[in-house]
C-alpha cells in the first residue's frame, strides 16, 4: 500500500513537477482555445453547405464528413505530421495538431449541426425567405439559433471529447499537459506526475460531464 502511494500519489514529487506540468496545462488550454472555435467554424461551414441541394456540393461534402469520421484522429495526426514531409510539406507540431483537429472536428461538429438544422421545420425557412431574407440570412438569423439550441447537449459533449483529444498532441511532441506529465514521469520513474495530470483533466471536465448527465436525465424523465 505504501509502495502504491509513493508510486502514484507522491505529493512532494508532484510539487516538484508542478512548474513543468502547469506550463503543459497552459498549452493545453491554449490548444483548446484555438482548436474548438476553429472546429466549430468548420462544422458550421459543413452544415450550411449541407443545406445546399446541389449534387456537386452534396456529394463531396458527404465524402468529406464520412472520411474524417471514419479515420481515427491519431492516424490523421500522424499522417499529417510524419507522412506529409515526404511531399515536402513540413508542419510544426502545433500546426499539425491544428490541421488534424480542424479536419476531424469540422466533420463531427458539422454532423451535429446538420442534425440540428434538420430538426427545424421547412416552414421556418419559407417564412423567413418570404420576409425578404436571402437563403444564407434565413439560415443564420432564423434556423441556426433554434438549431443550435436543439443540439446544445451534443455540441457540449463533443467539445468535451475535443478537449480530451488534445492529449493526442503529446504523440507529436507538442508540449501540452500529458506530454509534460509524461516527461516528468520519465525523469523521476514515478507515475505521480501523470496522476496529477489526470487530476487536472478531471478538474477541467468533470463539472461539464456532470452537467451533461443531469441534462440528459432531465430530458428523459
Amino acid at each position: 500500500m505504501e509502495q502504491f502511494l509513493t508510486q502514484f500519489f507522491n505529493v512532494s514529487l508532484m510539487l516538484e513537477a508542478w512548474p513543468i506540468v502547469s506550463r503543459g496545462l497552459l498549452m493545453t488550454l491554449l490548444l483548446c482555445v484555438v482548436v474548438v472555435p476553429l472546429g466549430f467554424a468548420g462544422g458550421l461551414m459543413v452544415a450550411l453547405l449541407g443545406t445546399v441541394e446541389h449534387r456537386w456540393v452534396r456529394w463531396p461534402l458527404v465524402v468529406y464528413v464520412d472520411f474524417f469520421r471514419a479515420i481515427p484522429p491519431l492516424v490523421l495526426l500522424i499522417v499529417i505530421h510524419s507522412g506529409l514531409p515526404f511531399a515536402g510539406i513540413r508542419f510544426s507540431p502545433f500546426a499539425s495538431v491544428c490541421l488534424a483537429f480542424f479536419l476531424n472536428n469540422s466533420a463531427y461538429y458539422g454532423e451535429i449541426l446538420r442534425a440540428g438544422i434538420d430538426s427545424i421545420g421547412k416552414g421556418q425557412v419559407d417564412a423567413a425567405r418570404s420576409t425578404g431574407l436571402n437563403a444564407l440570412q434565413a439560415q443564420i438569423y432564423v434556423v441556426l439559433p433554434q438549431a443550435i439550441r436543439n443540439v446544445l447537449p451534443d455540441l457540449v459533449s463533443n467539445t468535451v471529447e475535443v478537449v480530451k483529444l488534445t492529449s493526442l498532441a503529446s504523440v507529436v511532441a507538442f508540449h501540452e499537459l500529458l506530454y509534460s506529465a509524461e516527461m516528468a514521469r520519465s525523469i523521476t520513474y514515478n507515475a505521480s506526475p501523470i496522476v496529477m495530470a489526470a487530476g487536472l483533466y478531471i478538474l477541467m471536465l468533470w463539472p461539464v460531464v456532470r452537467m451533461l448527465s443531469r441534462f440528459e436525465h432531465r430530458i428523459s424523465s
Partner: peptide, 20 residues
C-alpha cells in the same frame, strides 16, 4: 468520461510495473 483514454493508458502501462 472526463479523462482522456491516453492518460489512463500511460498511467497503467508505465505506472503499474513500479508496483509489481
Amino acid at each position: 468520461r472526463a479523462l482522456p483514454p491516453l492518460v489512463l493508458i500511460l498511467l497503467l502501462y508505465f505506472g503499474l510495473p513500479n508496483v509489481g
